[in-house]
Amino acid sequence: MINLSDVSKTFTLHNQGSAVIKVISNVSFAVVPGECVALTGASGAGKSTLMRMIYGNYLTQAGQIRIGGLNIVQAEPRDVIKLRRDVLGYVSQFLRVVPRVPTRDVVAEPLRALGIPEIDAHDRASALLKQLNIPERLWSLSPTTFSGGEQQRVNIARGFAHAYPAMLLDEPTASLDAANREVVLSLIEDAKARGAAIIGIFHDEAARAQVCDREIDVAQFTPGLAA
């Protein structure tokens, strides 16, 4: 489902003496449907960078990243957008929303983008919010004023609203209490069970052990850190 071959990335900082920084080189691995792979490595090893490259958020200088047949490295923006809408989900650590949009609409939006009627999208959103213990009285409010943990859960609900065949999870259990952590892990296990290919970053080792099938140490791809 997700295939990386010989992937490399550099940052060129034009405004800081045109410094060229090699951050990732020669990454190759694959994730099959129903599999969850953890990216590991010390902070700064490039886990999030690699994940953003897979999402198409960071530009990849060399190699191929194929997701469901599309090479995201050379894809047109509209193909990447279609891929993100239909195939590839991403739960980041930060919630980014338009102010004043109610929480339930925020969660339902990925479904609305797929053309699912508002009523059905709202039903699914409500179920997820309930599952993640967001009190119903908050659903009609914008999440911008919520606490960090609440925002994180809204973000997860949004990320899991549509059953993406491929998912990227960046610290999905960070800043969650035990009960909600369990809910998130069960969502991940459900996703695996329906055949989603998942790549995740988990600092929470117990969580990683529970849901991940194997680990990939990103440090080996990081020039200067490897060896």
């Binding site: 034009h14 405004n15 960071y58």
Partner: peptide, 17 residues
């Protein structure tokens, strides 16, 4: 390019600025 890619990983000197 893709909006979030250009904003989060700008390539050209001016875009970075």
């Amino acid at each position: 390019g893709l909006t979030d890619q250009v904003l989060d990983d700008p390539q050209h000197a001016y875009s970075q600025l």
